[in-house]
Measured scan of single mutants.
Amino acid sequence: RQGFVPAAYVKKLDSGTGKELVLALYDYQEKSPREVTMKKGDILTLLNSTNKDWWKVEVN
């Protein structure tokens, strides 16, 4: 499932696989259909980080 999360809630990881991955630093509950819920410690695939406030991710 793809959607947006606050950029301040995730940290980029060095995956070494060519995929950009991020680590969820905090729990986040989606507040609109365009967002996704994540739990602290989740590893997500980063799809787009051009917006400084909201990053598009895919929940694996």
Results as ranks from 00 to 15, higher is better:
Arg1Ile: 07
Arg1Asn: 06
Arg1His: 07
Arg1Asp: 04
Arg1Pro: 05
Arg1Leu: 07
Arg1Phe: 06
Arg1Gln: 07
Gln2Cys: 11
Gln2Asp: 05
Gln2Trp: 10
Gln2Asn: 08
Gln2Gly: 06
Gly3Lys: 03
Gly3Phe: 09
Gly3Ile: 04
Gly3Arg: 03
Gly3Trp: 05
Gly3Leu: 05
Phe4Leu: 09
Phe4Ser: 03
Phe4Asp: 03
Val5Lys: 01
Val5His: 00
Val5Thr: 01
Val5Pro: 02
Val5Ala: 03
Val5Leu: 03
Val5Trp: 00
Val5Cys: 04
Pro6Glu: 01
Pro6Arg: 04
Pro6His: 02
Pro6Ile: 04
Pro6Gly: 02
Ala7Cys: 07
Ala7Asp: 01
Ala7His: 03
Ala7Asn: 02
Ala7Tyr: 03
Ala7Thr: 06
Ala8Gly: 10
Ala8Thr: 11
Ala8Cys: 13
Tyr9Cys: 10
Tyr9Ala: 10
Val10Pro: 00
Val10Met: 06
Val10Asn: 00
Val10Ala: 03
Val10Gln: 01
Val10Glu: 01
Val10Trp: 02
Lys11Asn: 06
Lys11His: 09
Lys11Ala: 11
Lys11Arg: 14
Lys11Val: 15
Lys11Pro: 01
Lys12Trp: 07
Lys12His: 08
Leu13Met: 10
Leu13Gly: 02
Leu13Trp: 08
Leu13Gln: 05
Leu13Ala: 04
Leu13Cys: 13
Leu13Glu: 04
Leu13Phe: 11
Asp14Ala: 13
Asp14Phe: 14
Asp14Arg: 12
Asp14Cys: 15
Asp14Ser: 13
Ser15Tyr: 13
Ser15Gln: 11
Ser15Asn: 14
Ser15Val: 13
Ser15Phe: 11
Gly16Gln: 13
Gly16Val: 14
Thr17Phe: 13
Thr17Gly: 15
Thr17Glu: 13
Thr17Leu: 13
Thr17Arg: 10
Thr17Val: 13
Gly18Gln: 10
Gly18Ile: 10
Gly18Phe: 10
Gly18Arg: 10
Gly18Lys: 11
Lys19Met: 11
Lys19Pro: 14
Lys19Ile: 13
Lys19His: 12
Lys19Ala: 11
Lys19Phe: 10
Glu20Val: 15
Glu20Pro: 15
Leu21Ser: 07
Leu21Ile: 09
Leu21Pro: 01
Leu21Phe: 12
Leu21Gln: 11
Val22Lys: 00
Val22His: 04
Val22Ala: 10
Val22Asp: 00
Val22Met: 04
Val22Gly: 13
Val22Trp: 08
Val22Glu: 00
Val22Gln: 01
Leu23Pro: 00
Leu23Phe: 08
Ala24Cys: 11
Ala24Asp: 00
Leu25Glu: 04
Leu25Trp: 03
Leu25Cys: 07
Leu25Tyr: 03
Leu25Arg: 04
Leu25Ser: 02
Leu25Met: 09
Leu25His: 02
Tyr26Trp: 10
Tyr26Glu: 10
Asp27Arg: 03
Asp27Lys: 03
Asp27Cys: 06
Asp27Gly: 06
Asp27Asn: 08
Asp27Val: 03
Asp27Met: 03
Tyr28Ile: 02
Tyr28Arg: 03
Tyr28Pro: 00
Tyr28Lys: 00
Gln29His: 13
Gln29Pro: 06
Gln29Tyr: 14
Gln29Leu: 12
Gln29Ala: 13
Glu30Ala: 15
Glu30Thr: 09
Glu30Arg: 14
Glu30Tyr: 05
Glu30His: 10
Glu30Ser: 15
Glu30Asp: 05
Glu30Cys: 14
Lys31Ile: 06
Lys31Pro: 04
Lys31Gly: 07
Lys31Thr: 12
Lys31His: 09
Lys31Trp: 04
Ser32Tyr: 06
Ser32Trp: 06
Pro33Glu: 11
Pro33Cys: 11
Arg34Phe: 13
Arg34Ile: 11
Arg34Cys: 15
Arg34Lys: 12
Arg34Gln: 12
Arg34Trp: 15
Arg34Ser: 13
Glu35Val: 06
Glu35Gln: 12
Glu35Ile: 04
Val36His: 04
Val36Gln: 03
Val36Glu: 01
Val36Asp: 00
Val36Pro: 02
Thr37Asn: 07
Thr37Arg: 07
Thr37Asp: 04
Thr37Pro: 08
Met38Asn: 00
Met38Val: 09
Lys39Pro: 01
Lys39Tyr: 11
Lys39Leu: 08
Lys40Ile: 06
Lys40Leu: 05
Lys40Cys: 07
Lys40Phe: 05
Gly41Tyr: 05
Gly41Met: 03
Gly41Lys: 02
Gly41Cys: 07
Gly41Ile: 01
Gly41Trp: 06
Gly41Pro: 00
Gly41Phe: 05
Asp42Val: 04
Asp42Glu: 10
Asp42Tyr: 05
Ile43Trp: 04
Ile43Gln: 04
Ile43Ala: 02
Ile43Cys: 06
Ile43Leu: 08
Leu44Pro: 00
Leu44Gln: 01
Leu44Ala: 07
Leu44Phe: 11
Leu44Asn: 02
Leu44Lys: 01
Leu44His: 03
Thr45Cys: 09
Thr45Tyr: 12
Thr45Met: 11
Thr45Gln: 10
Leu46Thr: 00
Leu46Ala: 02
Leu46Met: 03
Leu46Ile: 05
Leu47Ala: 02
Leu47Pro: 00
Leu47Ile: 14
Leu47Gly: 01
Leu47Asp: 01
Leu47Glu: 02
Leu47His: 04
Leu47Met: 07
Asn48Ile: 07
Asn48Trp: 07
Asn48Asp: 15
Asn48Ala: 09
Ser49Leu: 04
Ser49Arg: 09
Ser49Cys: 12
Thr50His: 10
Thr50Cys: 11
Thr50Asn: 12
Thr50Lys: 11
Thr50Glu: 14
Thr50Leu: 09
Asn51Thr: 06
Asn51Phe: 08
Asn51Ala: 08
Asn51Ser: 09
Asn51Ile: 06
Asn51Glu: 11
Asn51Trp: 07
Asn51His: 12
Lys52Arg: 13
Lys52Thr: 11
Lys52Asp: 10
Lys52Gly: 09
Lys52Glu: 10
Asp53His: 15
Asp53Gln: 13
Asp53Lys: 15
Trp54Cys: 06
Trp54Val: 02
Trp54Glu: 04
Trp54His: 03
Trp54Gln: 02
Trp54Thr: 02
Trp54Leu: 03
Trp54Ser: 03
Trp55His: 02
Trp55Val: 06
Trp55Phe: 06
Lys56Cys: 14
Lys56Ser: 07
Lys56Glu: 13
Lys56Asn: 06
Lys56Leu: 15
Lys56Ala: 08
Val57Gly: 00
Val57Gln: 00
Val57Ala: 01
Val57Lys: 00
Glu58Tyr: 06
Glu58Phe: 05
Val59Arg: 12
Val59Trp: 08
Val59Met: 10
Asn60Arg: 13
